[in-house]
Structure formats: C-alpha cells, structure tokens
Amino acid sequence: MTKLAIALTEFYADWEVALLMAEGRSSFGLDFTVASPGARPVKSMGGIRVVPEVAVERLDPQDHAGLVVCGGEIWQTDAAPDFGSTIRAFAEAGKLVAGICAGTLALARAGVLDEVTHTSNEAALLATSPAYRGQAFYRDQPAAVSDRMIITAPGTAPITFTAEIFRALGRGSREMEEYLALFGREHGAN
C-alpha cells in the first residue's frame, strides 16, 4: 500500500488535506502517517485535535511515497517549526514533496523551490524567507503546480492540490478527473 506522510502543526488548516486523506484512503488505496513536531498533539484552525503517530523529525523517506506539509497560521510566526532536514531528505530520495498554503513557506525555507516551477498564496509570502531563491520559478495562479515531484498550491486550491498528488502517485484516471471536477463545479457557477 502506498503511504504518504502528512505533516501537521498547531493550528493547521484542516480543509487543506481533508479531501486528500479521505479520498486517498477510501478510493485510491493510500495510507497516511500523521506527524507533527515532536509527535505532540495538535489542534486545527477548526478545533480538530489530532494525536500524531510520529515526529516529523523521525519520518523516513524509505517508508513513504511522499511528504505533504499542511498550511496553517504558525508558518508566518516565530513559532514555525523547522522541517528543513525532513523536507530535503524526501526530495533527495526522489519522493513527492508537497506544500499547500503557508506550508509552501516550509518548502521555500528548505530550498526545494529554488529550481522548480511552484506557486503559493502569493509571491510575497515566499519572499519572507531569506533562504528562498526560486523567485524566477514562481507562478501566480489559483491552481496547484507540479514540477519534478514537488507540488505546491495556494490554500484556496485543495482540490487541484489533491489531484496533482494523486497524479504524481500514479493514481490519475478518467474517473478521478470526473470526481474531482464535481468538487470544482461550484467555482464555475459564479
């Protein structure tokens, strides 16, 4: 069974990985390891309390197909954890590395966005990281971007974020495209 590591922090944005985890498990044969800094329990922005299985720092790329960093309020504060070594270990092992919303800031800080096409909530968010060198590869767009197993998305794009992860894991299909299109229909109604 394909397993993804999901990195959560205190006040993580629960909606950003909910579809990925629910549909990944029920429809696409994926399993998930939920991790947090120090394996400490975390509470989402919506108040959902999660007790992680492992510390982010102890995740082994050999045990997972990829790492997904969820966004949340902490990433733009001094309390933001440093996932850099874990993110780099996954990238160097050729595994999928994905970040959504302010979780993309963790990827920028780790240096994995410096030479791949990517997006985020806005370019200014990534520019707050002194380590970020990927400005030339930034794309200002409302949907997720996938380039060489690095997937990024603004927080308003959990559907295309989920789709790009499924595709990168070889789970893309006509049925998946139709299913995900159902979730996006509301945006075409305006």
Rank of each mutant, 00 (worst) to 15 (best):
A5H: 08
A5E: 12
A5L: 09
I6A: 13
A7L: 03
L8S: 10
E10G: 09
E10F: 05
F11E: 15
A13M: 01
A13N: 02
E16S: 12
E16F: 10
V17C: 13
V17H: 11
V17K: 02
L19T: 10
M21S: 13
A22E: 15
A22N: 13
R25W: 06
S27G: 10
F28W: 14
F28E: 15
F28S: 12
G29I: 10
G29S: 13
L30R: 14
D31W: 03
D31T: 15
T33Y: 00
V34E: 12
A35L: 10
A35H: 11
A35Q: 10
S36W: 02
P37L: 01
G38V: 02
G38F: 02
A39M: 09
A39H: 12
R40Y: 00
K43Y: 00
K43A: 13
S44Y: 08
M45V: 13
M45Y: 11
G46E: 13
G46R: 09
G46H: 10
G46C: 11
G47P: 07
G47R: 04
I48V: 14
I48F: 14
R49F: 05
V50A: 08
V51P: 00
P52F: 11
P52T: 11
E53T: 14
E53R: 14
V54W: 00
V56C: 07
V56L: 04
E57T: 00
R58A: 15
R58W: 02
L59R: 06
L59I: 06
D60G: 06
Q62M: 05
Q62H: 09
Q62R: 12
A65Q: 13
V68S: 07
V69I: 15
G72F: 03
E73Q: 13
I74D: 04
I74G: 03
W75E: 10
W75G: 09
T77D: 07
T77L: 00
T77G: 07
D78P: 02
D78T: 11
D78I: 00
A79F: 00
A79G: 03
A80H: 02
P81V: 02
P81E: 01
P81M: 02
D82H: 01
D82G: 00
S85E: 15
I87H: 03
A93I: 02
A93C: 06
G94M: 08
A98F: 03
I100E: 12
A102M: 07
G103I: 01
T104Q: 08
T104C: 15
A106K: 01
A106N: 04
A106L: 03
A106V: 01
A108W: 02
A108I: 06
A108C: 09
R109L: 03
A110R: 01
G111D: 04
V112R: 04
V112P: 06
L113C: 13
